[in-house]
Amino acid sequence: MSAPGTASSLEEDRLLLEQVKSGQEAPLVELYRRLKPEFVYWLSSNYSLPFETAEEIFQLVMVLFYENVMNQKLSELNSSLKTYLFAIGKNKALEFQRKKQKISFMEDLSVYHDRADEAMEEQELELQKETTLQQVARAMEALNEGCRKIISLFYYNKSSMRDIMAAMGYATEAVARNQRYRCVQKLKTLLQAS
């Protein structure tokens, strides 16, 4: 592996970006493993953060990077991945210093509130959101592997039905659509039962 920031490293970064785009998780984990020591050291020494906080920020940065790739907010690289990730990390560290709140993996997860909810206090809404997110996560855990995967591909990776068909080995897009529908219904049933 070349040193970060060099020309050949940029080529490697672009290749890695393509791999992540295609839904491969292993290169993402490898990138995490490769950059973590330097990132955590840099963050904790430059922003006077405890090791554990710097570590959580790096995990959050990697998650946001993955989501930016999947949402096509990041489709091509003009600088190295390291530069990109460190820039997000810097913003998150400054945000953390400003707010002095625990690092949350619930940030930016928007939940629409209808009129019935609007009367609630903000704190109450946050608590309700947290409870709901955890309930859905537990229901996802209770689904079979196939359903978990198809739901995640559709709603998290925002993959097209054609890509889901290929990833799941279905014969047609219609089969993929039907299967997704059934899985979402199962998830809703599990949630109602919880």
Partner: peptide, 27 residues
């Protein structure tokens, strides 16, 4: 609107589940 509020709770939960799954892979 009520249906959409329910839908966003579901999709936010799916996002949250996947985030935690990634964090677990990192750990």
């Amino acid at each position: 609107a009520a249906g959409y509020a329910e839908f966003t709770r579901l999709t936010a939960g799916i996002q949250y589940y996947n985030r935690m799954r990634l964090v677990q892979a990192f750990k």
